[in-house]
Simulated assay, not measured.
Amino acid sequence: MSQLRVLHLITAAETGGAETFLCRLLSRLPRECFKSRVVCMVRPGHVGGRIRALGIPLATLGMRRGLPSVGAVRKLMEMLQDFQPDVVQTWLHHADLLGLVAARLAVESNLVWNLRNSRLDAAPWTTRAVVWLCARLSRLPEAVLTNSETARDQHRALGFRPRRFEVLPNGIDCGEFRPDPAAREALRKEFGISPETPLAGMLARHAPMKNHAGFLRAAALVLKELPEARFLLCGTGVTQVNRELMAQVNQAGLRGRVILAGYRQDAPRVLNALDALCVPSAYGEGFPNAAAEAMSCGVPCAATDTGDAARVVGDTGRVVPPNDEPALSRALVELLTLPPDQRTALAGRCRERIATEFSLDAAARAYASFYEELTGRR
């Protein structure tokens, strides 16, 4: 049987959750069964290079953010006509809309939307308009996928009524994200943190929904209980040149207690250095990748009840209401002060939960099965 041809259209290929998961998914879809291509609406970033390193062709439409382009539609139509995909898989709202227009004009293929974020509180009006339009057109794709039950339910509340609505959770590479005592020692040495120092961290790009300000306020409360604690923040825009973030650090009285490490390509090493990961999102989460990655490394999480965080964390960490810094600080203190035997046992439960329920292999099998069933190949 010939390979099933899948063209993935995504807004960008930077460091977001959707882009990262697409790259990981492509690394596990069997090449003998699937022939994949990726098209970015704008210029690709970090993840684009990783996709190309897999041997997957990646092209760009050269669009500018926030600006529609008739030329981009024509260019995408030419790519579709050249590749003749069995499935056009689009990722995120803008790509969903563009893919719908181009695919319907250019080829006969199965169009599948993929929705990730669950709320649009701080989204610009242009994005809200795209989402509104997608909701009205949501019966046109053959199917709509999402990575979380929360995103599915909240898109239904926004008016999405697809013919087929499926939840396919993200998956974590448990071989890449694994307990690594040597990495823990090396990274702590890099940042000048002793092995005994309680260390909590946050791995997220700087954006309102990620709620760095809330994390810093919670960290200040943690220091009242654990003066020796330190805090490590990594992600795009999380550096000392970020004036807004530095003002929040100073306002919380955390100068000298917080390390702002910026974007890191060694997330497994960073996570292994932590005693607890914090996911303080105020809104907008779908599937919290950072929490699942930390758990796969044996690091417990304190997370706010946004998206499917409670579903991922289960009974291996702490889940608190959004924007409740006292509750978040108490959760962090509980995790940072666990006795060694309890910490070891909890680390094992964290990793087992991800390996059992949210592994990358399981996610790839789910996508492969979905594409094959959709196209009648199974």
Score class of each variant (00 low, 15 high):
residue 106 A to T: 04
residue 76 L to Y: 10
residue 142 E to M: 02
residue 335 L to P: 05
residue 61 L to A: 07
residue 19 E to G: 03
residue 245 L to G: 06
residue 286 G to R: 08
residue 58 L to Y: 07
residue 58 L to P: 03
residue 137 L to W: 13
residue 373 E to R: 14
residue 333 V to H: 07
residue 156 R to A: 15
residue 133 L to I: 11
residue 86 D to H: 14
residue 209 M to C: 04
residue 198 P to D: 08
residue 183 A to Y: 15
residue 137 L to G: 05
residue 245 L to W: 04
residue 210 K to S: 03
residue 139 R to Y: 13
residue 167 V to Y: 14
residue 173 D to T: 06
residue 335 L to Q: 09
residue 143 A to T: 06
residue 140 L to Y: 12
residue 70 V to L: 15
residue 71 G to S: 14
residue 305 D to M: 02
residue 160 F to P: 04
residue 312 V to D: 13
residue 62 G to S: 12
residue 72 A to V: 02
residue 236 T to D: 10
residue 135 A to D: 08
residue 115 L to H: 05
residue 230 R to V: 01
residue 370 F to W: 06
residue 336 L to V: 02
residue 244 E to C: 00
residue 46 H to E: 11
residue 88 V to G: 04
residue 31 R to I: 00
residue 283 Y to W: 15
residue 107 V to F: 05
residue 338 L to I: 02
residue 343 R to V: 00
residue 193 I to G: 02
residue 120 L to A: 11
residue 146 T to L: 14
residue 99 G to A: 11
residue 37 R to F: 01
residue 148 S to C: 06
residue 5 R to G: 00
residue 87 V to C: 06
residue 277 L to G: 07
residue 126 T to M: 03
residue 207 A to S: 10
residue 282 A to E: 15
residue 86 D to P: 05
residue 76 L to D: 08
residue 290 A to K: 07
residue 87 V to G: 02
residue 190 E to I: 00
residue 168 L to K: 06
residue 173 D to F: 09
residue 350 C to H: 08
residue 376 G to Y: 04
residue 105 L to V: 00
residue 268 P to C: 10
residue 269 R to G: 10
residue 309 A to G: 06
residue 139 R to N: 05
residue 357 E to M: 06
residue 246 M to F: 00
residue 279 V to E: 05
residue 167 V to K: 13
residue 330 R to Y: 00
residue 119 R to A: 14
residue 332 L to H: 11
residue 57 P to M: 14
residue 122 A to D: 15
residue 328 L to C: 04
residue 120 L to K: 02
residue 273 A to I: 07
residue 38 V to T: 12
residue 93 H to S: 10
residue 272 N to T: 09
residue 224 K to F: 00
residue 33 C to T: 09
residue 146 T to F: 05
residue 303 A to C: 15
residue 359 S to R: 08
residue 169 P to A: 11
residue 158 L to G: 06
residue 207 A to H: 14
residue 179 P to A: 15
residue 47 V to A: 03
residue 66 G to C: 07
residue 270 V to D: 07
residue 158 L to M: 14
residue 336 L to I: 03
residue 368 A to K: 03
residue 234 C to S: 06
residue 292 A to D: 11
residue 86 D to Q: 11
residue 291 A to Y: 15
residue 132 W to H: 10
residue 149 E to P: 01
residue 144 V to Q: 12
residue 153 D to S: 08
residue 187 L to S: 04
residue 234 C to H: 02
residue 216 L to R: 09
residue 327 A to Q: 11
residue 287 F to G: 08
residue 12 A to H: 10
residue 90 T to W: 15
residue 193 I to Q: 03
residue 232 L to C: 07
residue 140 L to I: 12
residue 172 I to Y: 13
residue 203 L to E: 01
residue 303 A to L: 13
residue 52 R to E: 15
residue 28 R to Y: 14
residue 246 M to T: 14
residue 217 R to F: 00
residue 318 R to I: 14
residue 141 P to C: 12
residue 133 L to W: 11
residue 55 G to M: 06
residue 302 A to V: 15
residue 221 L to K: 14
residue 293 E to P: 04
residue 197 T to K: 05
residue 119 R to K: 09
residue 25 L to V: 07
residue 352 E to Q: 13
residue 227 P to Y: 10
residue 227 P to F: 10
residue 343 R to A: 15
residue 282 A to V: 01
residue 93 H to P: 02
